[in-house]
Design a protein around this nucleic acid. Sequence first.
RNA 1: GGCGGCGUGGCCGAGUGGUUUAGGCAGGGGCCUGCAAAGCCCCGUACGGCGGUUCGAUUCCGCCCGCCGCCU
Length: 345
Amino acid sequence: MRAPEPASGTLIPPDLPEAAQAPPPAALAPVALVGATATGKSQAALKVASTVPGIELVSVDSMAVYRGMDIGTAKPDRAARARVPYHLVDLVDPSEEFTVQQFQAEARRVLAAIAARGHRALLVGGTGLYLRSVVDDLSFPGTYPEVAAALAGSLEASGAEGSPSWRSALEDLHRRLAVLDPVAAGRVDPANRRRLVRALEVTIGSGRPFSSFGPGLNRYPPTEVTQVGLRHDPTDLDRRIAGRFDRLMELGFLEEVRRLAARPGGLSRTARQALGYRELLSHIEEGVPLRTAVDIAVQRTRALARRQSSWFRRDPRIVWMDGDVAGSVAVLLGGFPQAAATVGE
RNA sequence: GGCGGCGUGGCCGAGUGGUUUAGGCAGGGGCCUGCAAAGCCCCGUACGGCGGUUCGAUUCCGCCCGCCGCCU
């Protein structure tokens, strides 16, 4: 009898979804478990990792990379992480900025190490772009801060954000991109300042069209990574989200945010946009009523879940399952139903 | 009981006697190669009820209903 395993007779669904019957991927190729927030991915992954030998978990979560942001990101606790290798969490200090680029580099390193050990990686997480960066081995163009600053500066100088002159300046930028890189211009929404500036930054900075760095994200080439999507009834998921937030508050989420905010470096631009942190920060720093902050956080989390579902839904390579996926994933990873069932007894 | 005010789409909230019937939030859909738990785009003919005035009423008048305030 193993202490951490709750009694469960449903570890293995009687019918294995198609994924389990699909041609087996390369022996050691990673498997990914994806889905919206609060869907139970991490729990399922931990379950799998504790039943199938040689599995190492790799988090694919843009916010769990920050040290000290534990409660709000619902990181597995110390005990769980002691039992199962859990990578790509606690990579940087919350006062530092972090981007896909770094994530990808770390992921490559970790995945190589896992393979070298003869182990198998189970990627778990809900940050779509981060996952794509490893699944599709995207190559990100570099960054050209001076160019970006100049572009941003010209926009700022044109007037207040949203003003007519500002809008026309934005249109000018899009026209400029259309000349330098028509393909990219076609992909970037003229109103999306951030994407627009980025495409221009790369094109001008590198001297190569932004679009030449990749086909875009709406191409889904074959990959050796088997991706399993965990789906949930939307109403049920909303309930889980609200319930989970209450639980996080009870665990001392507010205190965690206070502590982080009080640190010398505070929270970086990227770290402070984490859901829950952002809203709780508005309570701490701007006096927004706690109740309001919490309500907003829950609402925004629902919105996030929708965006995540929408993102993953588009990827035709993902095999969807609902309910208890741990058993199926275990099989996929080479575990045996009997073994898992025995542990679950 | 009297007097006054209010009653707008799920919520908040402008407004007008008659071209496209504000806006915000929530909700739904979609997008995306360096902030991605972020960012961006699209989607809503609603004016409490019944009469009246009017060529035409959500907007004016009357009554009714409901809410709020004050008075007795």
